[in-house]
Write a protein that binds this DNA or RNA. Structure first.
Length: 423
RNA sequence: GGAGACUUGUCCGAGUGGUUGAAGGAGCACGCCUGGAAAGUGUGUAUACGGGAAACUGUAUCAAGGGUUCGAAUCCCUUAGUCUCCGCCA
């Protein structure tokens, strides 16, 4: 959520930045400013009346204390009149505040100054590429065939148990998941991230905090009986750990990592993109999250996280590229996003495996995650997060890119974790 | 799932309708004391929003929401959470 004070003081800048994100309705900015003015006016009126009433009530209390019942009764009558107008005014105020809030949450985060203009994914900018695309044997096949050949994932039985898009990992396929999760977590904790294992279902307030509600409601599985949502990413429960908290400046930065399954309805998606492990309803992911002091440049932290994920891909010996997303392709809450894609050699296409973003204070404003600075002032933190990494597409690439006639050769870092150098 | 107890500031803990944003203590910060420290001692120590150049000031907040009342931390209702016992269960 953007800060209303900031909008009020930077109307033109806000509009200009929103246009980079191709935000359609710039008049919403004016609307929000008008609503804010209305709220403030009503608030001033209402509080003045309230102050009068509080003073009168105190007087009555004092009169009662002195035993002057008649005077107290008289005062009561007077106050009773005022009470009605206070009620009316506070109803108006509450309605105005709700309207303001409903409108302001529709405004997406402002993109960072360096975000390229653009509407479609084609306009994302390739920052750099790394790794080497392999030369595959003539007999090379996509991962969904390799999965069958080595009996790693049973999609059909997964569909029988739950539905399509719920893979059942099996044997070495299951073990590879475990090995990757373990490796990613070890790699992250070695870099100073604290490991968490959060609840996989969250309540409404939590889903709202990271911005999944209200606009991405359809993306999440909803347990209506209890009002819970299955998490679409560890970002949701983990960032909310600090919701409504004021932390000490000396505790910063807060670095957290978590492995969780992720659940996504992906309503309406189908076709060749969703074959095999390319897009599923349940998948495993390890996430990294940082809450940092906004006075230190949080974009340095973003670069740092990008380098962290990039090194991981180097260790996995996968060919990758890093994209800086254009305004139109960025998420609602993000100020700057880098996507990581790995090259799936048999499918001959790039697959997104990580998305690293700086949200500045957009999420923390919603969640009221703050710290006390040196002067004793409370300030919002900046939040950042990224995947390190999402497993299914990594697995797809590991399988495809490392296939030989009779085996799949795993990168060295996984040998100990997997207990073997090949499948 | 059933029965009961409870939920106050950073923490502990008073407080059953009236100058209570909230006693007291601990912690923390600053000062005094000290050669230095401990002890002692003094002062200060929530958040949000609004007004004001500032000093300061108004409103709200005692789990959350609603109600009764001129007035609620205190009374009533609803919800959530914690604990204890029973049931069930990995």
């Amino acid at each position: 959520m953007l800060q209303i004070n900031f909008i009020r003081q930077n109307i033109d800048l806000v509009k200009e930045r929103l246009s980079v994100k191709n935000f359609g309705d710039l008049s919403l900015v004016d609307k929000v400013v008008d609503l804010d003015e209305k709220v403030r006016k009503l608030k001033a009126e209402s509080e003045t009346l309230q102050a009068q009433m509080n003073a009168a009530s105190k007087e009555i209390g004092m009169l009662m204390g002195k035993g002057d019942k008649d005077a107290a009764e008289k005062k009561k009558q007077e106050v009773a009149q005022e009470k009605i107008s206070i009620q009316q005014l506070s109803e108006q105020l509450a309605a105005a505040e709700k309207t303001l809030h409903d409108e302001i949450v529709k405004l997406p985060n402002l993109p960072h100054i360096s975000v390229p203009k653009g509407k479609t994914p084609e306009e994302n900018v390739v920052v750099r590429e790394g790794g080497k695309k392999p030369t595959l044997p003539a007999t090379a096949v996509p991962h969904w065939d390799l999965i069958k050949k080595y009996d790693l994932v049973d999609f059909e039985t997964g569909a029988k148990i739950t539905g399509s898009g719920f893979p059942l990992y099996k044997g070495k396929g299951a073990k590879l998941q475990r090995a990757l999760i373990q490796y990613f977590l070890d790699y992250n904790t070695a870099a100073g991230y604290t490991e968490y294992l959060p609840p996989l279902m969250v309540n409404e307030a939590t889903a709202y905090g990271t911005g999944q509600l209200p606009d991405k409601e359809g993306q999440m599985y909803h347990v209506t009986e209890d009002g819970f949502y299955l998490i679409p990413t560890a970002e949701v429960p983990v960032t909310n750990i600090y919701r409504d908290e004021i932390v000490k400046e000396t505790d910063l930065p807060i670095k957290m990592t978590a492995y969780t399954p992720c659940f996504r309805r992906e309503a309406g998606s189908f076709g060749k993109d969703v074959r095999g492990l390319n897009r599923v309803h349940q998948f495993d992911k390890v996430e990294i999250i940082q809450l940092v002091n906004p006075d230190n440049n949080s974009y340095d932290v973003l670069e740092n996280m990008v380098n962290h994920v990039e090194k991981l891909l180097n260790f996995l010996e996968l060919p990758y590229r890093i994209l800086k997303l254009c305004g139109g392709d960025m998420g609602f809450t993000s100020a700057l996003t880098y996507d990581f894609e790995v090259y799936s050699a048999a499918q001959e296409r790039w697959l997104e495996v990580s998305s690293v973003s700086n949200f500045e204070n957009f999420q923390t404003n919603r969640m009221k995650i703050r710290f006390k600075d040196a002067t004793g002032k409370t300030q919002l933190l900046h939040s950042l997060n990224g995947s390190s990494l999402a497993l299914p597409r990594i697995v797809a690439c590991l399988l495809e890119n490392n296939q030989t006639e009779s085996s799949i050769e795993l990168p060295k870092v996984l040998h100990t974790y997997f207990g073997s150098s090949k499948i």
